[in-house]
Simulated scan of single mutants.
Amino acid sequence: MKNLIYIFAFLLSFSAFAQNTSWFEQGNALYNEGDFEQAILKYETILENGEHSAELYFNLANAHYKLNHIAPSIYYYEKALQLAPNDKEIKNNAAFARNMTIDAIGSVPEIGLSNYIKNLTNKLSFDTWAKVSVFFIFLFVILFLLYYFAYSTTRKRLSFVSSMVCIGLTCITLAFAFHKYNLDKKDQPAIVFVQESQIKSEPNLRSTEAFILHEGTKVQIIDTVNNWKKIKLSDGKTGWILNQDIKAL
């Protein structure tokens, strides 16, 4: 009975995969024909089925970009970059999309040791740092066994020193892994999805206006109160925006 269930589940997943592939190809064909709105509908159908990929988000972003949909194009380019952060083509197209935004927001330069550590931490993902740590632990075990069973004093010394180096590197990479985890946990980007949004100084409509943002601007969500989000810009400004005015990445 269990085998039948597994076979049935496999067939269902295979059928869904085949259907998604078909929709993706149809979306690409519609895009090449210049029917961008219908292409978007095909791509969105795949998303509704729970399928996600950098290629899908990239094509969806391109279709929105062709229709001058500022916020959706930037949103989906950012989604694509989350899955393929080093893809040059996605980066290039995302830069063109950002040029359509109105808001010119600077950034607070980060300097010193903390900035260097942050940049180094972001070189790898949390999973990759964890895998590197496991690799050094494995090396430590091998080297320690060599030290334990070696008869030569020189080999014992080299094995012991090398194993201690591996322990040190394990601790360092674990520290980077947890630092990356904390950075990712704090990173809550969102895109402004309305043409213009009044950012308030407090989470209510009666408070004074802090500044105005326009569609396509990327912000960081740092707090939530009822139907308001506290956001922070790259230049350090903070304020409160209505939930419906932004879309979290």
Rank of each mutant, 00 (worst) to 15 (best):
G236S: 07
L242M: 06
I105F: 03
E44W: 03
T121S: 08
V134L: 11
I40L: 02
R98Y: 04
F138C: 10
V192K: 09
A63Y: 11
F193L: 09
L113K: 15
V134W: 14
D184H: 00
N86K: 15
N243W: 08
Y116T: 07
F14L: 04
A210D: 05
F10N: 15
H69Y: 13
Q195G: 01
N28M: 07
S163N: 10
E89K: 09
Q82K: 12
D245M: 03
E48V: 02
E202C: 01
A177T: 10
L11E: 14
A61D: 03
K91R: 15
W129I: 07
D223F: 03
N99S: 13
A104Q: 15
G239C: 02
W240V: 02
F36Q: 01
I172Q: 13
F135K: 00
L205Q: 09
Q19T: 09
F135T: 13
F160I: 13
L120Q: 10
A63N: 10
K118V: 10
N49Y: 08
C166I: 08
Q26V: 08
I7H: 00
P189I: 14
K200A: 07
R98V: 06
K91M: 04
K185P: 02
I231T: 07
V132C: 08
K118Y: 09
A150Y: 10
K79Y: 02
L41Y: 13
I172N: 05
F136H: 15
N59W: 05
F8W: 09
I5A: 03
I221P: 01
V192Y: 04
A54E: 09
N28R: 15
T128N: 04
A63H: 06
L56M: 05
Y57L: 12
A71T: 06
S163L: 01
S201T: 15
A95S: 11
W240A: 03
Q220L: 13
K131W: 14
K91Q: 11
R206F: 04
I40T: 01
G112D: 03
A29W: 12
L213F: 04
D127L: 03
N122L: 12
F160W: 04
Y65Q: 14
G236Q: 11
F136K: 14
S162G: 05
L47M: 11
G168C: 06
H214I: 09
Y43M: 08
G236Y: 07
I241K: 05
K186L: 05
Y147I: 04
D103H: 05
L120W: 09
F149S: 07
K230Y: 02
I117P: 00
E51R: 07
D103K: 15
T21N: 12
G34D: 06
E196Q: 11
W23N: 15
G112N: 08
N49E: 10
A61F: 10
A97M: 09
N119V: 07
F135C: 08
K118P: 01
I199M: 02
I241P: 00
S159V: 10
A9S: 11
L83H: 06
T170Y: 08
L233D: 08
A248Y: 06
T121W: 10
V161A: 03
D223A: 13
T224P: 00
I221K: 06
K218R: 06
W23H: 15
F178D: 10
A63E: 10
Y151S: 06
L146G: 01
S152F: 14
D235I: 05
A177E: 05
E51Y: 01
V141F: 00
F193C: 07
Y148M: 04
N182T: 09
T45D: 11
V108M: 04
